[in-house]
């Protein structure tokens, strides 16, 4: 018991010396709660879910399956009545992929995704930072301005206490340094939000992509597995669904899992779009008196 108190005191001392680097594990015994992702392989392992009031880090190559897995988790949270905000720093998401996520529909989903039903559905919202800056500011948007705005948005979303989960998509440039980590941590302490940093690593990410962050409570790194399944069409496969390999780490422990997906071919239900009516109006509204 005494040794545990000493470790806690040491961590607090180190936190004062190196803000943002030694916060891992300090929430032990506090009111912190884990958000289950609904993905059996993650919830049943050492990670057990994503912690509120803490930072989790999901990383992997630009194409690694991490966002597809995250979408499944978001659909699960929305069905559980939790609200999720996604900071799309580089405005890369496609609306059609996320249009039904609030109804719990997420395309390819982990084969063992837990079923969920709730009386109240959560909301899914996004902030497309680079697109907004392009629209509001003249001239080229510098990377520094984009980073600054994205971090400000993250802080505001956490402070608003409206969202249970905030996903911060950093893309290939890991621009969250230790000071920003510390600032985000302080915002999280006064909220119930779980913050997920989504990072691209590897060749396609920028020169800062290799920067590691030490403030994350839970880390998961993903990559596509070489094994995949296909959905066959008339003369060839119409969809490729690879599995995802995930390396999970928490409190110094690690675990590797492989998560398979089940997916249906998109039904293309949408009708042929209407040709816009561009006939001019023949009558003008009359003023009455």
């Amino acid at each position: 018991m005494a040794s545990k108190a000493n470790v806690t005191a040491l961590r607090q001392h180190l936190e004062q010396l190196f803000p943002g680097k030694w916060l891992v594990g300090q929430e032990q015994g506090s009111s912190q709660k884990l958000l289950r992702t609904g993905i059996g392989d993650i919830d049943a392992g050492i990670v057990r879910g994503l912690p509120r009031r803490a930072i989790s880090e999901w990383s992997g190559a630009a194409s690694s399956g991490k966002t597809t897995l995250l979408r499944s988790a978001i659909a699960y949270w929305c069905l559980s009545g939790l609200s999720v905000a996604y900071i799309d720093t580089f405005s890369r998401l496609v609306a059609a992929d996320w249009a039904f996520v609030e109804q719990g529909i997420c395309g390819a989903m982990p084969a063992n995704l837990a079923p969920r039903k709730s009386r109240h559905r959560g909301r899914f919202m996004a902030v497309r930072v680079s697109q907004r800056l392009d629209a509001t500011r003249k001239g080229e948007i510098t990377r520094v301005a984009l980073r600054k705005e994205a971090c400000w948005v993250a802080e505001q979303l956490i402070k608003s206490a409206l969202f249970d989960v905030v996903v911060f998509d950093l893309g290939g440039s890991s621009f969250v340094n230790d000071r920003v980590y510390a600032r985000l941590h302080r915002s999280l302490e006064r909220s119930r939000t779980a913050l997920i940093l989504l990072k691209d690593t590897g060749a396609r990410s920028g020169p800062e992509g290799s920067n590691s962050s030490w403030g994350a409570h839970t880390r998961a790194s993903f990559q596509w597995s070489d094994s995949f399944s296909t959905r066959e069409g008339i003369d060839n496969s119409v969809m490729i669904v690879p599995s995802v390999k995930a390396d999970l780490a928490r409190d110094g422990l690690g675990q590797r899992v492989e998560i398979g997906f089940s997916a249906n071919v998109s039904n293309s239900l949408f009708t042929y779009p209407q040709i816009p009516d561009r006939r001019t109006s023949k009558t003008r509204p009359r003023t009455k008196g």
């Binding site: 496609v94 249009a99 039904f100 395309g107 669904v241 997916a263 998109s266 039904n267 239900l269």
Partner: peptide, 15 residues
């Protein structure tokens, strides 16, 4: 359809 196939398979990130 009970949502089957309504959303796309994997998440696309556009350039």
């Amino acid at each position: 359809l009970d949502g089957k196939g309504l959303a796309s398979g994997l998440v696309l990130k556009r350039f």
